[in-house]
């Protein structure tokens, strides 16, 4: 089943055609990577999918529903979670609290319930706490639960960010350059986490620079260059694709 379908996505920034009529689908349960040289439009494409950037034309459908005109928070609620290239931890919150925010779409205590501390919210808070701890455990960072997230090492913050994204029980997880800024050990660690997330039945779409990471874990790869899709296929197909070799190594 095609979980996410991107159809003729288009985005211009003034004279720059950042994303030029890109189409592809993401099957349920796979790890799919979008690669390309710097400035190929990968992150722009990501921001178009997650709604944080308005698109010029084209559609995105997720679980057979069109989501391309929804706001980012609505897209998040529909079951799509994302991470950021420059990890965006919430300042002034512990790792645990960061993950708790991730459960926002799955919980419902509002202003009145919060101010009046209504008894039913206690059970909800307990549920939030337990689930957040479970996710920290899954990502092997429970020992950092009560440490302010922004003071953790980069790799640990990346793990907290994964836990935070998983907290909303997403159907699909969008990872924007998950290995950015990490050393080779941390990158290997992230690769292991991503396959572990896939094993939970969550589809993963990632944008990545680091070839070793992409080739190791991806089931399928889309290659962008100057905003256009130039290839799509399995890692071994991509490795032998002449166009891809040309843009990466030059002629």
């Amino acid at each position: 089943m095609t979980l996410l379908k991107i159809d003729a996505m288009d985005k211009r920034f003034g004279g720059l055609h950042a994303v030029n009529s890109v189409s592809f689908g993401v099957e349920q349960g796979v790890i799919k990577a979008v690669i390309g040289p710097n400035g190929a439009g990968k992150t722009t494409l990501f921001n178009l999918i997650s709604g944080s950037l308005p698109h010029d034309s084209g559609t995105v459908s997720f679980q057979n529903k069109q989501i391309s005109d929804l706001k980012p928070y609505q897209i998040a609620r529909s079951g799509m979670a994302r991470t950021f290239q420059n990890i965006k931890m919430f300042h002034g919150m512990t790792a645990l609290e960061n993950v708790k925010v991730g459960m926002h779409p799955r919980t419902r205590a509002g202003f009145w319930a919060g101010m009046l501390n209504l008894p039913w919210t206690w059970a909800e808070e307990k549920k939030i706490h337990d689930r957040a701890m479970e996710l920290l455990h899954l990502l092997e960072i429970e020992e950092f639960a009560h440490i302010e997230a922004t003071s953790l090492a980069f790799g640990q913050q990346r793990a907290v960010e994964f836990a935070r994204a998983l907290a909303s029980d997403p159907k699909i997880l969008l990872l924007d350059e998950p290995a950015a800024g990490l050393n080779i050990y941390e990158t290997a660690e992230v690769a292991r986490l991503i396959t572990r997330i896939q094993a939970q039945g969550i589809t993963v779409l990632l944008v990545e620079h680091d070839m070793s990471l992409v080739m190791d874990i991806s089931d399928e790869i889309v290659v962008l260059s100057f905003g256009e899709k130039i290839a799509e296929g399995t890692p071994s197909e991509i490795q032998h694709n002449e166009d891809v070799i040309k843009i990466y190594l030059g002629e």
């Binding site: 928070y73 300042h91 919150m93 609290e97 939030i128």
Partner: peptide, 23 residues
């Protein structure tokens, strides 16, 4: 409460809060 956490999150990193489903 949940609302307080969401508010602190907005203060901490608004676009990330948005991406976490906070209106």
């Amino acid at each position: 409460s949940r609302v307080g956490r969401a508010l602190t999150a907005i203060h901490g990193a608004e676009d990330a809060a948005d991406a976490m489903g906070v209106n």
